[in-house]
Design a protein around this nucleic acid. Structure first.
Length: 580
RNA sequence: CGGGGCGUAGCGCAGUCUGGCUAGCGCACCUGCUUUGGGAGCAGGGGGUCGGAGGUUCGAAUCCUCUCGCCCCGACCA
């Protein structure tokens, strides 16, 4: 066992919040002495932080094993050729950390693995050739490298992080679905056991479509992702993915006003125009020019809505959709960027459903420094197709029930994804079936950010005094806090209690520092160890110890006789609460 | 890569605008004494290339130029 006395380990707690840390998980991980920053996007795990990380890792490993996945460890160093074969050198771009190694008389171009589809698929291609060897799910827990151009939020977005990545290999889509479901269930157990309040959400699924991808989210104000959630039926989806419910809209009441062109010098954004003309963004139409497979089209949205390129691409049935270049915009609108509008526009016009309800709208004038007011559908402009083309928003109708959607920030802690044959095709991972036919292996991939489990937990479970660990992830389960470390009688009891708890398999830390009680209590609360045992000369006279849970305000007394068994029992009870 | 902020003792900060005695404060640290149930008191002490380089000046933490690093917002994110 490693040192389990405070004075023998390294727990550099900080009284004040370090400059540069802003969100709770970052501040508390630094203050509690869990991590130390090495550079932007890279941290050292100090003894306490490492213990928590190892516990999360262990839960992940246990549940992967239970689900039938097999652990291996792939190299972090990978040959660039493998990434070229799948086209991901370009796809990753600057994110892929790669460099050349000098070796006797030649150079070897390598990349540090940001994920391992290529490596694992190549491995399986080499060693699997028959349907008899499948299905197979392989996983590893390993440090991944991605050059984040802007690392941020402490441990939440770093260039080096610990990831569990699993890959399933099946002979059929049914097999893939079964493998996927097993991983999905394992993920639920993992996050449950970690004491996280998580939410599986439908995510952008790429080429396969359908329910081919889910993200596991922890709702937190500082999360970088946004999800919509319906409180009444439980529907949850990534913002990019989320459908919006029934939007059959009826036109707003009121008389049609005449179409009038106004001078709006220099106002090229919705915000500027609304300010100048004293109208609300929701009374405006945002006209965006896209190129769909090279053909310019116009997308009309209500001014306060955000375009969703994935939805636009699917609605058009196009392979690629991107915002048009300024040259194309000027050619089709005959105006500089910022003044596009539907009136007189001659390219195909697609509109989001909500545009149909707008009456007397403010739109671009297709002329420099001009906007129209009083624009109305049919009379002043027409739309070729209506569709769902925008991101969902708070208070949109739920697509699954009569409820309304709520918009939340969230931290992505896991992602499960049905890959299909993208990598097995490119890397020729094939198998012979019963009829000796050569077929391509069907894959799934499944990731968990192990560091993010810790960060998300702290982000959502802390108070003004510090971290509040669940028993399952706490670096130590029990803190023994002798009040007078200088008193040999007190320390004798503390040492004995420590040794006996350790023998019972309890993770116990003895704060043997000769500090005033206040200092020890504050540090204990900051570090967040779930159960605190205080040994003072006062209680000791009556053969009593004091027992306090991190989550409770009041402490209770416990007779010294039989204390070890009682404490061990309390700890295992608390662990069990989260283990099923 | 665009916008903003910061860099002074281990940590948190003041001083910079308006250049001027020996660069300051709190915490932490060391020594001694007194204390001991929610970040103790007194006394004494150590610790600084003021991020770095160049320049202006009689004189630079302070003004100018360049540069490095960190943080935040945006863009980007299999």
């Amino acid at each position: 066992m490693p040192p389990v006395r405070w004075s023998q380990t390294l727990i550099p707690t900080l009284k004040e919040s370090p400059e540069g840390a802003e969100i709770p998980s970052h501040v508390l991980m630094l203050r509690a002495g869990l991590i130390g920053q090495v550079m932007a996007g890279a941290y050292t795990y100090l003894p306490l932080g490492l213990r928590a990380l190892k516990k999360a890792e262990r839960i992940v490993r246990e549940e992967m094993d239970r689900a039938g996945a097999v652990e291996l460890l792939m190299s972090a160093l990978t040959p660039i050729q493998l990434w070229e074969r799948t086209g991901r050198v370009a796809a990753f771009g600057n994110v892929l950390i790669n460099f050349k190694l000098n070796r006797a008389g030649r150079q070897v171009h390598v990349a540090l693995g940001p994920t391992h589809e290529e490596i694992v698929t190549d491995l399986v291609a080499k060693h699997v050739s028959s349907y008899r060897q499948l299905p197979l799910t392989l996983y590893q827990i390993q440090t991944k490298f991605r050059n984040e151009e802007r690392p941020r939020f402490g441990i939440l977005r770093t260039s080096e992080f610990l990831m569990k990545d699993a890959y399933s290999f099946d002979t059929s889509v049914e097999g893939l679905n079964a493998s996927y479901d097993k991983m999905y269930a394992a993920y639920c157990r993992i996050f449950e056991r970690c004491g996280l309040q998580y939410l599986p959400v439908e995510a952008e699924s790429g080429p396969i479509g359908g329910d081919a991808s889910h993200e596991f989210m922890v709702v937190a104000d500082n999360g970088e992702d946004r999800v919509v959630h319906c409180a009444s039926c439980g529907y949850a989806a990534n913002l990019e993915r989320a459908d919006t419910g029934d939007r059959t809209v009826k036109a707003e009441p009121g008389d049609l006003k005449p179409l009038t062109k106004l001078d709006t010098p220099g106002t090229t954004s919705i915000e500027q125009v609304s300010k100048l003309l004293k109208c609300k963004p929701r009374q405006m139409i945002k006209t965006m020019i896209y190129e769909a497979d090279g053909q310019p089209i116009a997308v009309l949205l209500r001014g306060d809505h955000e375009a969703n390129e994935g939805k636009i691409r699917r609605a058009l049935g196009a392979k690629s959709v991107e915002l048009a270049s300024p040259e194309v915009i000027e050619r089709v609108t005959k105006a500089p960027v910022g003044f596009a509008g539907p009136v007189g526009l001659e390219i195909p016009r697609w509109a989001d459903h909500d545009v149909a309800a707008l009456r007397n709208a403010v739109v671009g004038g297709n002329e420099q420094d001009k906007h129209y007011v009083g624009a109305n559908l049919t009379r002043d402009y027409t739309v070729d197709h209506f569709a769902d083309l925008r991101n969902a928003d708070a208070d949109d109708p739920c697509p699954k029930c009569a409820g309304k959607l709520a918009l939340r920030h969230a931290i992505e802690v896991g992602h499960v994804f049905k890959l299909g044959t993208k990598y097995s095709e490119a890397l020729e991972a094939r198998f012979s079936d019963e009829k000796e036919q050569l077929r391509t292996i069907i894959m799934g991939c499944y990731g968990i950010g192990v560091n993010r489990i810790i960060a998300a937990l702290i982000e959502t479970q802390h108070d003004a005094d510090g971290i509040i660990w669940p028993m399952a992830l706490a670096p130590y389960e029990v803190l023994i806090c002798p009040i007078k470390a200088s008193d040999p009688e007190v320390m004798k009891v503390a040492d004995q209690l420590h040794d006996e708890l350790l023998a019972q398999g309890v993770d116990v830390l003895l704060d043997d520092r000769d500090q005033r009680p206040g200092v020890k209590f504050k540090d204990g609360d900051l570090v967040g160890i779930p159960l605190r045992v205080v040994i003072g000369d006062r209680g000791l006279k009556d053969g009593q110890l004091e027992l306090k849970w991190r989550t409770k305000k009041e402490a209770g007394m416990l007779p010294l006789a039989g204390a070890v068994e009682k404490i061990a029992e309390l700890v295992s009870q608390a662990k069990r609460l989260n283990s099923n």
